[in-house]
Design a protein around this nucleic acid. Structure first.
Lengths: 197, 197
DNA sequence: GTCTATAAAGGGATAGAC
DNA sequence: GTCTATCCCTTTATAGAC
């Protein structure tokens, strides 16, 4: 038992990863209620009991599935470095994430959004993520209704993502992300107000 | 049996109405999956079996609950008369429905929207209603991307309604509808493009 | 016509065999 | 540690009593 191709810890880690991937995909596709442990296990090619053994409950599995995404949604794209914090910069970053979203938005985010209207935990998570984004935006918007404007900007983003990724409106299918970003930019700029940087 | 306070047909009609009201309210609150026939019957103070007797299935009950709303959502507010069809007029009408939504948006619409991400039938219904609205808007928008712009306008409206009515974001709670309309107007105008009427 | 009783199905969770 | 078998609950839907 000295040398082993896959140490048990490593093997377990990979199995967990497969389960989480399958869970994210199914949660994102049909939402919390309709995604069953059995179906997730089948998709991950493991035994349903194993899923329970690893994650304890369906609710726990769901939280694990969307957790990682919560943070990287909050940071926008993958680059949360020291880019500018001006309103224009933030708008561009949001439009950028939209671009990323079109192709392959992180499935954890989609899983959370898919269930946010019908699953209380998902709603709480969505409010937290959006709240964090609104906080950021508020700081970079000057003027009277900064926080309200920031909130409206995020609701616009939610609306476009819902229409595009979740409702899959025909009118938005196959439209290049840059095109949507181009049309949306003036609308978001109007909400940030005059940028006095 | 000549004269009766409530003819049986009338009594049945009222009972059906009570059931539909209760169904709309519960569907709007918790979505299709979590709204059970039992809970709806309890709320309407009737026997669960009666609900099945009247509507045949849960799916049928849901469709009946959201049907009426589908049309009056399509017409905007209650006034679908011969008001103008210019882009500006339509934007104002949309902003007006937003105002109405804040206070008491038709519960049938909320029921449909609550479930549109997780219930296939609700999704289909939502796409139809939004598609009809997009058609209207497209006619009044001139220029290259008329249909795409119209679709984005509707997604913005969806986003605001979701954030406000369904997700109930703190930042939007208690904000007067006119205020939201005022801040949103320039964004929507930006999407309609220059109005050459 | 209205309700009681129950059927039928599905899913989350668990105990124990291997 | 992994899987088999099963428990137990909830829900929709139906059949038949009153």
């Amino acid at each position: 038992m000295g040398e082993r191709v896959l140490p048990r810890a490593e093997r377990r880690r990979r199995t967990e990863g497969r389960i989480l991937d399958a869970a994210r995909a199914l949660f994102a596709e049909v939402g919390y209620e309709r995604a069953t442990i059995r179906a997730i296990a089948r998709s991950a090619e493991v035994d349903p009991a194993l899923v329970m053994q690893y994650f304890g409950s369906k609710q726990e599995l769901f939280q694990q599935s969307v957790r990682v995404t919560a943070v990287d949604t909050a940071t926008g794209t993958e680059t949360d470095a020291d880019t500018g914090t001006g309103a224009e910069d933030l708008v561009e970053r949001l439009l950028g994430t939209l671009g990323a979203k079109m192709g392959e938005m992180p499935q954890g985010s989609l899983a959370m959004m898919r269930s946010m209207l019908t699953h209380p935990e998902a709603a709480t998570s969505a409010r937290q993520v959006l709240g964090a984004q609104i906080d950021r935006l508020t700081e970079s918007i000057h003027g009277e209704d900064a926080r309200l404007r920031a909130a409206l900007i995020m609701t616009v983003m939610v609306g476009v993502t819902v229409g595009n990724q979740l409702l899959e409106l025909d009118e938005l299918r196959g439209v290049p992300p840059e095109e949507i970003a181009r049309l949306l930019r003036p609308s978001l700029r109007a909400l940030t107000g005059p940028d006095v940087s």
